[in-house]
Design a protein around this nucleic acid. Structure first.
Lengths: 140, 140
DNA sequence: TTAAGTGCAAATTATTTGCAGTAAG
DNA sequence: CTTACTGCAAATAATTTGCACTTAA
C-alpha cells in the first residue's frame, strides 16, 4: 500500500495532485520514492542527492518542490530543530528518533509506541497531527 | 514544588546556576516566573514584555538569556515550527497544543496523555527528552 | 500561446557573534 | 582589578521571493 507510491509517483501521480510533471520534479520524486523506501531529507541533503544523481535542479527549486509536495500531502514536515526543516516521505503519524549531536532523524519503531490516551482538541479546534519526537543523546 | 521556583528565582537562584544576577537577567527572570505561572515565550514576545515592563534589555541579551537559562535547565526549548524558537518555563516532559494558524503554543492537560509504551533508545544512546506536540487547526 | 515552473540573485527572518564599553565580584 | 555581561551592528543560516526566461499543455 505504501509501496505502490513508488510506482504511482510518476507523471500520473504528479498530475493527479495538480502539479506539472517537470523534469526537476520527476527527478526529485524518483530520488524520494524511487525504490519504495521511506526517507528523511532536508533541502540541502536532497539538493546534494540531485547533484550526485547528475540531475540539474536548483536549490530554489528543491525548496519549492519540498513545499509543493508537502502541500499536496506527499511529504510531511517534521520539526526537530529550530534551524533546519526535515521532510519525511512517510506521511502517517509515527514517532521519530532525533540524534541531538549529529542532527540525524530516523523513524522509531511505530509498534513500540502506544498512546493509551491523548488530550482532546479544545473546542473549536481539531487535531491536524501529533508529533512525537524522542530526542537521543549518545551515551558513554 | 514548582511554585517555589518563583521565589528562588532571584539573585540566589542565578548564582547557584553560575550566572551573575544582572539587572537584565533579574528583570527577565521576574517576567518569566514572577507570579509562579508557567509561560511560553519567544525571544520577540519576551523582548516586548521587557519593554512593556519598562525594563531596558536589548534583544541580543534576551536571546543570550534564553539560551543561558535553557542551558542551566531553567527553561526548555519547544520545537513547534521551523521558524521561531519557543521556550517553556515548565521544563518537565509534558504535551503541548500548537495552533497552526495563530502560532500560539500552550500546555495540553498532562493528565490526559498516557503513553503506555515508548520505543527504547537504540543502543549507545539514551533518551534526553520526549516531545509531544498536538497540532491544532481551527474548525468551522 | 499561455499559464505554470525554473533559476538566479536579492530579500527576509530568526538568531548568533565580534567587540568595545559597562558592571559585578 | 578582572572577568563576565551587555548592546550595538555586522555576520550567518535557512528559506522565500521577484522577475526574466523556459517549458509543458
Amino acid at each position: 500500500m505504501h509501496h505502490s507510491q513508488a510506482k504511482e509517483m510518476g507523471a500520473r501521480w504528479l498530475e493527479s495532485a495538480g502539479l506539472r510533471p517537470t523534469k526537476q520534479r520527476l527527478a526529485i520524486a524518483s530520488l524520494l520514492v524511487g525504490d519504495g523506501q521511506h526517507r528523511h531529507v532536508t533541502a540541502e541533503s536532497l539538493f546534494e542527492a540531485t547533484q550526485a544523481a547528475g540531475d540539474k535542479v536548483s536549490l530554489a527549486t528543491v525548496y519549492n518542490t519540498l513545499r509543493s509536495f508537502s502541500e499536496v500531502g506527499f511529504l510531511r514536515e517534521i520539526l526537530v530543530n529550530g534551524t533546519k526543516g526535515y521532510f519525511d516521505t512517510n506521511t502517517t503519524n509515527h514517532p521519530h528518533f532525533f540524534w541531538e549531536d549529529t542532527g540525524q532523524l530516523q523513524d522509531a519503531p511505530e509498534e513500540d509506541l502506544e498512546i493509551a490516551a491523548l488530550p482532546a482538541a479544545p473546542k473549536g479546534a481539531e487535531i491536524s497531527k501529533v508529533d512525537v519526537v524522542i530526542r537521543l543523546r549518545s551515551k558513554g
